[in-house]
Amino acid sequence: MKMTSLKMKKILEEKLANPNYHITYNRDKDTLRFEWKDTKQGMSVTLPNVVAKYNQRGDDAIDELVDHVSEALRIMNEDHKLTGMEKQIYPVIRATSFATKTKAGTKLVCKDHTAETRVYYALDLGKSYRLIDEPMLDNEGWTKERIDEIATFNIRSLSNDYKKDTVADNDFYFVAHQDGYDASRILNEAFLEEMKANSKGELAVAVPHQDVLIFADIQNKTGYDILAQMTMKFFAEGRIPITSLSFIYDNKTLELVFIMAKNRPEKR
Protein backbone atom coordinates (compact mmCIF):
# COMPACT_ATOMS: atom_id res chain seq x y z
CA MET A 1 0.00 0.00 0.00
CA LYS A 2 1.45 3.33 -1.08
CA MET A 3 1.75 5.77 1.78
CA THR A 4 0.39 9.29 1.21
CA SER A 5 0.38 12.41 3.38
CA LEU A 6 -3.31 11.96 4.16
CA LYS A 7 -2.82 8.35 5.22
CA MET A 8 0.15 9.39 7.37
CA LYS A 9 -1.98 12.18 8.87
CA LYS A 10 -4.61 9.65 9.94
CA ILE A 11 -2.00 7.29 11.44
CA LEU A 12 -0.38 10.06 13.48
CA GLU A 13 -3.71 11.45 14.66
CA GLU A 14 -4.62 7.98 15.96
CA LYS A 15 -1.26 7.26 17.58
CA LEU A 16 -1.01 10.67 19.22
CA ALA A 17 -4.64 11.04 20.22
CA ASN A 18 -4.93 12.88 23.54
CA PRO A 19 -7.91 14.81 24.92
CA ASN A 20 -5.52 17.57 26.05
CA TYR A 21 -4.06 18.10 22.56
CA HIS A 22 -5.41 20.30 19.83
CA ILE A 23 -4.48 18.80 16.44
CA THR A 24 -4.66 20.93 13.29
CA TYR A 25 -3.81 20.18 9.66
CA ASN A 26 -2.41 22.87 7.37
CA ARG A 27 -3.31 21.79 3.84
CA ASP A 28 -1.14 24.43 2.13
CA LYS A 29 2.03 23.47 4.02
CA ASP A 30 1.04 19.79 4.39
CA THR A 31 1.87 19.90 8.09
CA LEU A 32 0.18 18.46 11.16
CA ARG A 33 0.42 20.46 14.38
CA PHE A 34 0.05 19.05 17.89
CA GLU A 35 -0.30 21.51 20.75
CA TRP A 36 -1.53 21.65 24.33
CA LYS A 37 -5.03 23.15 24.48
CA ASP A 38 -4.31 25.27 27.57
CA THR A 39 -0.87 26.72 26.74
CA LYS A 40 -0.93 26.56 22.91
CA GLN A 41 2.64 25.21 23.06
CA GLY A 42 3.33 22.49 20.55
CA MET A 43 5.13 21.33 17.44
CA SER A 44 4.43 20.80 13.76
CA VAL A 45 5.29 17.76 11.67
CA THR A 46 5.93 18.00 7.91
CA LEU A 47 4.02 15.05 6.50
CA PRO A 48 5.94 14.52 3.19
CA ASN A 49 9.17 14.20 5.23
CA VAL A 50 7.58 11.55 7.43
CA VAL A 51 6.31 9.68 4.37
CA ALA A 52 9.84 9.73 2.90
CA LYS A 53 11.27 8.28 6.11
CA TYR A 54 8.49 5.67 6.20
CA ASN A 55 9.35 4.62 2.65
CA GLN A 56 12.95 4.10 3.74
CA ARG A 57 12.46 2.52 7.16
CA GLY A 58 8.85 1.39 7.45
CA ASP A 59 6.92 1.42 10.75
CA ASP A 60 10.10 2.12 12.74
CA ALA A 61 10.13 5.65 11.32
CA ILE A 62 6.57 6.27 12.56
CA ASP A 63 7.26 4.81 16.01
CA GLU A 64 10.38 6.98 16.35
CA LEU A 65 8.47 10.12 15.36
CA VAL A 66 5.63 9.36 17.78
CA ASP A 67 8.22 8.99 20.58
CA HIS A 68 9.84 12.32 19.64
CA VAL A 69 6.55 14.22 19.48
CA SER A 70 5.27 12.71 22.75
CA GLU A 71 8.51 13.50 24.55
CA ALA A 72 8.69 17.06 23.17
CA LEU A 73 5.11 17.80 24.20
CA ARG A 74 5.67 16.29 27.65
CA ILE A 75 8.72 18.52 28.20
CA MET A 76 6.82 21.63 27.04
CA ASN A 77 4.18 20.99 29.67
CA GLU A 78 6.56 20.64 32.62
CA ASP A 79 8.16 23.18 34.92
CA HIS A 80 11.90 22.71 34.93
CA LYS A 81 14.27 23.91 37.64
CA LEU A 82 17.97 24.56 37.12
CA THR A 83 19.03 24.45 40.77
CA GLY A 84 19.98 20.89 41.62
CA MET A 85 20.27 20.02 37.90
CA GLU A 86 23.66 21.63 37.33
CA LYS A 87 25.25 18.39 36.09
CA GLN A 88 22.59 18.12 33.38
CA ILE A 89 23.32 21.50 31.75
CA TYR A 90 25.28 21.44 28.49
CA PRO A 91 26.07 23.85 25.66
CA VAL A 92 24.69 23.10 22.20
CA ILE A 93 26.02 24.50 18.93
CA ARG A 94 23.54 25.79 16.36
CA ALA A 95 23.74 27.75 13.12
CA THR A 96 23.44 31.52 13.40
CA SER A 97 20.17 31.19 11.44
CA PHE A 98 18.68 29.24 14.38
CA ALA A 99 15.94 31.17 16.21
CA THR A 100 16.90 33.19 19.30
CA LYS A 101 13.31 33.11 20.57
CA THR A 102 10.72 30.37 20.99
CA LYS A 103 7.58 30.49 18.86
CA ALA A 104 5.85 32.00 21.88
CA GLY A 105 8.37 34.88 21.78
CA THR A 106 10.44 33.84 24.82
CA LYS A 107 14.14 34.70 24.51
CA LEU A 108 16.54 31.75 24.55
CA VAL A 109 19.85 32.06 26.40
CA CYS A 110 22.64 32.12 23.82
CA LYS A 111 25.97 33.72 22.94
CA ASP A 112 27.99 34.33 19.78
CA HIS A 113 30.60 31.75 18.85
CA THR A 114 31.78 32.18 15.23
CA ALA A 115 30.39 33.87 12.11
CA GLU A 116 28.56 30.61 11.38
CA THR A 117 27.70 29.29 14.84
CA ARG A 118 26.03 30.29 18.08
CA VAL A 119 26.02 28.64 21.52
CA TYR A 120 22.75 27.77 23.27
CA TYR A 121 22.28 25.93 26.56
CA ALA A 122 20.31 22.76 27.18
CA LEU A 123 18.86 21.08 30.24
CA ASP A 124 19.36 17.37 29.60
CA LEU A 125 16.23 15.40 30.43
CA GLY A 126 17.40 11.92 29.50
CA LYS A 127 15.67 11.03 26.24
CA SER A 128 15.70 14.65 25.13
CA TYR A 129 16.58 18.12 26.31
CA ARG A 130 15.06 21.55 26.69
CA LEU A 131 16.79 24.72 25.53
CA ILE A 132 17.16 27.13 28.45
CA ASP A 133 15.34 30.44 28.12
CA GLU A 134 15.86 33.74 29.91
CA PRO A 135 12.78 33.41 32.21
CA MET A 136 14.27 30.16 33.57
CA LEU A 137 17.40 32.10 34.56
CA ASP A 138 15.41 35.01 35.99
CA ASN A 139 13.23 32.71 38.09
CA GLU A 140 16.29 31.32 39.87
CA GLY A 141 18.44 34.44 39.90
CA TRP A 142 21.08 32.94 37.63
CA THR A 143 23.27 34.97 35.28
CA LYS A 144 24.26 34.08 31.70
CA GLU A 145 27.86 33.90 32.89
CA ARG A 146 26.94 31.26 35.45
CA ILE A 147 25.06 29.06 32.97
CA ASP A 148 27.97 29.35 30.52
CA GLU A 149 30.51 28.41 33.18
CA ILE A 150 28.50 25.35 34.28
CA ALA A 151 27.84 24.18 30.71
CA THR A 152 31.47 24.63 29.67
CA PHE A 153 32.65 22.66 32.70
CA ASN A 154 30.23 19.82 31.88
CA ILE A 155 31.26 19.56 28.23
CA ARG A 156 34.85 18.99 29.41
CA SER A 157 33.67 15.98 31.42
CA LEU A 158 32.40 14.09 28.35
CA SER A 159 34.45 11.43 26.58
CA ASN A 160 36.38 12.63 23.52
CA ASP A 161 36.99 9.23 21.89
CA TYR A 162 37.21 9.38 18.10
CA LYS A 163 37.63 7.24 15.01
CA LYS A 164 40.50 7.97 12.66
CA ASP A 165 40.58 7.68 8.89
CA THR A 166 43.49 8.54 6.58
CA VAL A 167 42.76 9.68 3.04
CA ALA A 168 45.46 10.80 0.58
CA ASP A 169 47.94 11.24 3.47
CA ASN A 170 45.55 13.46 5.44
CA ASP A 171 44.25 12.31 8.82
CA PHE A 172 40.58 12.77 9.72
CA TYR A 173 39.17 12.25 13.22
CA PHE A 174 35.45 11.78 13.88
CA VAL A 175 33.84 12.34 17.27
CA ALA A 176 30.36 10.79 17.10
CA HIS A 177 29.00 9.58 20.44
CA GLN A 178 25.37 10.28 19.46
CA ASP A 179 24.73 11.88 22.85
CA GLY A 180 23.45 15.17 21.43
CA TYR A 181 26.68 17.03 22.26
CA ASP A 182 29.20 15.88 19.64
CA ALA A 183 29.38 19.27 17.93
CA SER A 184 29.44 20.94 21.37
CA ARG A 185 32.84 19.41 22.04
CA ILE A 186 34.27 22.14 19.80
CA LEU A 187 33.89 24.30 22.95
CA ASN A 188 36.34 22.11 24.88
CA GLU A 189 39.48 24.21 24.42
CA ALA A 190 41.73 21.63 26.09
CA PHE A 191 40.58 19.02 23.55
CA LEU A 192 41.27 21.40 20.64
CA GLU A 193 44.71 22.20 22.01
CA GLU A 194 45.48 18.48 22.37
CA MET A 195 44.47 17.81 18.75
CA LYS A 196 46.51 20.83 17.60
CA ALA A 197 49.58 19.65 19.53
CA ASN A 198 49.36 16.23 17.88
CA SER A 199 48.70 17.45 14.33
CA LYS A 200 51.45 17.22 11.73
CA GLY A 201 49.99 19.86 9.41
CA GLU A 202 47.29 22.50 9.68
CA LEU A 203 44.38 21.60 11.94
CA ALA A 204 40.89 22.16 10.53
CA VAL A 205 37.68 21.64 12.50
CA ALA A 206 34.12 21.15 11.24
CA VAL A 207 30.67 20.84 12.84
CA PRO A 208 28.42 19.98 9.87
CA HIS A 209 25.63 18.76 12.15
CA GLN A 210 24.84 18.27 15.82
CA ASP A 211 25.97 14.65 16.02
CA VAL A 212 29.53 14.89 14.70
CA LEU A 213 32.73 16.86 15.26
CA ILE A 214 35.41 16.46 12.59
CA PHE A 215 39.10 17.25 12.95
CA ALA A 216 41.29 17.25 9.86
CA ASP A 217 45.08 17.14 10.04
CA ILE A 218 45.68 18.70 6.62
CA GLN A 219 49.05 17.73 5.17
CA ASN A 220 48.59 18.54 1.48
CA LYS A 221 46.29 20.51 -0.82
CA THR A 222 44.10 17.50 -1.53
CA GLY A 223 43.16 17.44 2.16
CA TYR A 224 41.20 20.68 1.87
CA ASP A 225 39.18 19.33 -1.05
CA ILE A 226 38.41 16.08 0.78
CA LEU A 227 37.35 18.00 3.88
CA ALA A 228 35.04 20.28 1.84
CA GLN A 229 33.30 17.32 0.20
CA MET A 230 33.08 15.39 3.47
CA THR A 231 31.63 18.33 5.40
CA MET A 232 29.04 19.05 2.73
CA LYS A 233 27.93 15.39 2.74
CA PHE A 234 27.57 15.33 6.55
CA PHE A 235 25.77 18.69 6.48
CA ALA A 236 23.21 17.40 3.96
CA GLU A 237 22.57 14.21 5.93
CA GLY A 238 22.43 15.62 9.47
CA ARG A 239 19.26 15.65 11.56
CA ILE A 240 20.17 19.11 12.92
CA PRO A 241 22.55 20.69 10.35
CA ILE A 242 24.88 23.44 11.54
CA THR A 243 27.36 24.58 8.86
CA SER A 244 28.95 23.11 5.74
CA LEU A 245 31.97 25.40 6.17
CA SER A 246 35.12 24.58 8.15
CA PHE A 247 37.45 26.40 10.51
CA ILE A 248 41.21 26.54 10.86
CA TYR A 249 42.21 26.24 14.53
CA ASP A 250 45.31 28.22 15.39
CA ASN A 251 46.42 30.42 18.32
CA LYS A 252 43.34 29.29 20.28
CA THR A 253 40.98 30.77 17.68
CA LEU A 254 38.65 29.31 15.06
CA GLU A 255 38.93 31.12 11.76
CA LEU A 256 36.21 30.47 9.22
CA VAL A 257 37.47 29.41 5.80
CA PHE A 258 35.79 28.84 2.47
CA ILE A 259 37.56 25.88 0.91
CA MET A 260 37.87 26.19 -2.83
CA ALA A 261 38.01 22.82 -4.61
CA LYS A 262 41.62 21.73 -5.19
CA ASN A 263 42.89 24.82 -3.39
CA ARG A 264 44.02 26.11 -0.07
CA PRO A 265 41.25 27.78 1.91
CA GLU A 266 40.49 31.42 1.43
CA LYS A 267 39.92 33.29 4.66
CA ARG A 268 36.58 34.98 5.06
Rank of each mutant, 00 (worst) to 15 (best):
S246P: 01
A190G: 13
T143K: 07
L213I: 12
L158A: 11
K200A: 15
D171V: 14
E145R: 07
R156A: 15
V205G: 05
T152R: 04
M195S: 02
H209S: 13
S159N: 15
A183C: 06
Y173N: 00
T143E: 12
I186R: 02
L192T: 10
S246W: 00
D217A: 10
D225M: 07
N198K: 15
Y181G: 00
D161N: 13
K163R: 11
G201M: 03
G223R: 11
K163H: 07
E193H: 13
E202S: 11
A176W: 09
K200V: 15
V207M: 01
S244R: 02
Y162W: 03
N170I: 03
D182M: 06
S199W: 02
G141Y: 13
E237F: 04
T166S: 13
Q229G: 15
I150A: 00
G238V: 09
Y173K: 03
I186S: 10
L213Y: 07
M195I: 12
T243I: 02
L203M: 06
F215S: 08
A168Y: 07
L192C: 10
Y162N: 01
K200I: 14
V212Q: 01
V175T: 05
K163N: 09
S246H: 02
T152L: 09
R239I: 08
I218T: 08
D217N: 14
A183W: 06
S157M: 05
M232P: 03
K196Y: 13
A176T: 13
Q178W: 08
T222L: 10
F215Y: 13
E193F: 06
N160Q: 03
E145L: 04
D217Q: 11
K221Y: 12
I186E: 08
N188F: 05
N188D: 15
D148P: 04
F247H: 13
A204I: 11
M232S: 15
M195V: 07
L158P: 00
S244C: 00
I155P: 02
F172T: 04
A190N: 13
M232D: 15
L203T: 04
L158S: 12
L245H: 09
T222C: 04
H177Y: 11
D171S: 14
E149W: 03
E145N: 14
A228M: 11
G223H: 07
S246R: 01
E145W: 05
I240M: 06
D211G: 15
G201E: 02
T222F: 03
H209C: 13
E145S: 15
K221M: 14
D161E: 12
D225P: 03
G141C: 12
M232A: 15
D225T: 15
F172S: 08
L158T: 12
A204K: 03
R146E: 05
V175D: 08
G201C: 01
K144A: 09
I150E: 02
I147P: 02
K233Q: 08
S159P: 07
V175P: 00
D171G: 05
N160P: 00
S246Q: 05
S184F: 00
D169Q: 05
S157T: 09
L245E: 08
A190P: 01
V207F: 02
F172M: 14
E149R: 06
P208C: 11
L158V: 11
H209D: 14
E237G: 12
I248S: 06
E193G: 14
W142L: 14
V212S: 03
G238L: 10
G201S: 06
V175K: 02
M232T: 15
L187P: 10
T166A: 11
T152I: 05
Q178M: 14
Q229L: 13
A236G: 06
Y249C: 06
V205Q: 02
